[in-house]
Design a protein around this nucleic acid. Structure first.
Ligand SMILES: [Zn+2]
Ligand SMILES: [Zn+2]
Ligand SMILES: [Zn+2]
Ligand SMILES: [Zn+2]
Lengths: 135, 135
DNA sequence: AATCGGAATGTAATACCATAACATTTCCAA
DNA sequence: TTGGAAATGTTATGGTATTACATTCCGATT
């Protein structure tokens, strides 16, 4: 469930589009799916996506230039969320791992590095797709 | 040191450009720096970068659409290399952590996920830049 | 030496991703 | 009521990456 009290009209439309989608969507794909709702320009999508990311309701997948709705309960921590992305069907699993978080935290402390955003994305093939096509 | 026996002319030029650079470079920046060497089109750069990535001599930083020369000895493992990227000066630290690798490995095993490429990038500010600008 | 074929290269065109700049509207608090 | 911040609409532009096709390079084979 990904509702939010203070979403604007455009933000709501974009979030609903991502919720309905079975796979990550590019900003331009979202734009196309919202033409009938009055969307005309990429910036309408990017602005909504920006706010939704601030709220923690949407994540950007850096390795594929696409966006997904957060599947976790609203308000969950996002400091070090990891994503497993299926190249075949597009399914995305979002997960966190305390040990990974701690190890990377140790590295940045040891190197006096001040982290702002951490990206962890595993691209590959999910169990279903591997089963269907045992390549 | 990042020499390689079988590099072609274009691959050598691109790798040298990345070696000389103090920060990650975009493909188009590389193109500009190689105009005098006869480079004319983006594809010349992308093709060389593709091969260099295959050889493990160059890495793509997904979160900033840029490329760096590998700083590790040639032939080192790259299954789960992590990068700390300074937003201010561009310095990149490449490192590996066995524990991180194991934890992510456990997740993929548990979920029968078949990983192809893992991206770990920490964006932030390095020690030097934090010291200079204690913000 | 001639020839064959795969790899690399050259070039133009196109597709895809993201933001700048500016005008207008909405909405809420003072 | 009104002032101002936030959101929206619109156009133009800039940055990133690939498709498609022609050509050249180079080593293996004959
Ligand atoms: Zn999330
Ligand atoms: Zn799949
Ligand atoms: Zn490396
Ligand atoms: Zn720095």
């Amino acid at each position: 469930m990904t509702s939010h009290p203070d979403l604007t009209k455009n933000q709501t439309l974009v979030l609903k589009t991502l919720d309905k989608a079975e796979a990550p969507l590019s900003a331009y794909t979202i734009l196309d799916r919202l033409r009938d709702d009055g969307f005309r320009a990429p910036l309408q999508v990017y602005r909504a996506l920006g706010k939704l990311q601030e709220f923690g309701l949407v994540h950007r997948l850096e390795s594929i230039n696409a966006f997904v709705a957060c599947c976790q309960p609203h308000g969950h921590r996002h400091e070090m969320t990891a994503f497993a992305i299926c190249r075949t069907c597009g399914k995305v699993d979002e997960f966190s791992d305390t040990a990974v978080e701690e190890r990377l935290g140790e590295w940045v402390r040891a190197h006096r590095f001040k982290p702002a955003k951490t990206t962890i994305e595993i691209s590959g093939d999910c169990a279903d797709c591997t089963a269907h096509d045992p390549g």
